[in-house]
């Protein structure tokens, strides 16, 4: 589900307001348990902010796609990480570089190998997109 930039920003603003009032409350709270509960809320807020930022970055990525190279599934199959080639994988039409991603030792990840479109496998294991945001985008799968 791709949200528009405007919706994301509105929600971010809302969270920041909530957080500010929470911080004010924290200064006044004597009870350690109540403070903990507010802190949890704050922590949830930052997590959501992080999520939203990721979405923003992803939107950005989508926009820059046209300027990046188009990669066919056949070309992708060369990027297995073996024999000096980098390791690429595709998810939802975007090709990522996992050559030096820690979870992709020897260009394999939980029985999956690089050089493939792993959209379905990704969806079945990783909810949300935050992991993808940390990866380098190398192009668009056509």
């Amino acid at each position: 589900m791709i949200k528009s930039e405007k919706t994301i920003c509105q929600r971010m603003k809302q969270i920041i307001e909530e957080s500010e009032s929470n911080i004010k409350m924290l200064f006044k709270m004597p009870c350690i348990y109540a403070r903990t509960s507010v802190l949890f809320e704050l922590s949830a807020n930052t997590a959501e902010l992080n999520e939203l930022c990721s979405q923003l970055i992803e939107n950005e990525n989508r926009q820059v796609q046209p300027t990046q190279s188009n990669i066919t599934i056949e070309q992708l199959s060369q990027f297995t990480g073996k024999n000096g080639n980098p390791a690429y994988v595709a998810v939802n039409g975007i090709v990522y570089d996992v050559t030096n991603n820690a979870a992709w030792a020897a260009a394999t990840h939980f029985g999956l190998t690089a050089g493939k479109d792993l959209t379905d496998e990704f969806a079945s294991c990783h909810a949300g997109h935050s992991i993808l945001d940390k990866l380098k985008v190398v192009g668009k799968l056509i």
């Binding site: 990480g81 073996k82 024999n83 000096g84 080639n85 020897a106 260009a107 394999t108 939980f110 029985g111």
Partner: peptide
């Protein structure tokens, strides 16, 4: 290398245990 023996999915999801063809430079 660690072969992930303490991780769920071992051994199938942790293979190959040892690869050399990913270590070479271009």
């Amino acid at each position: 290398p660690c072969i992930g023996c303490a991780m769920f999915g071992f051994p199938d999801s942790m293979e190959p245990f040892i690869s050399y063809d990913t270590t070479r430079k271009r």
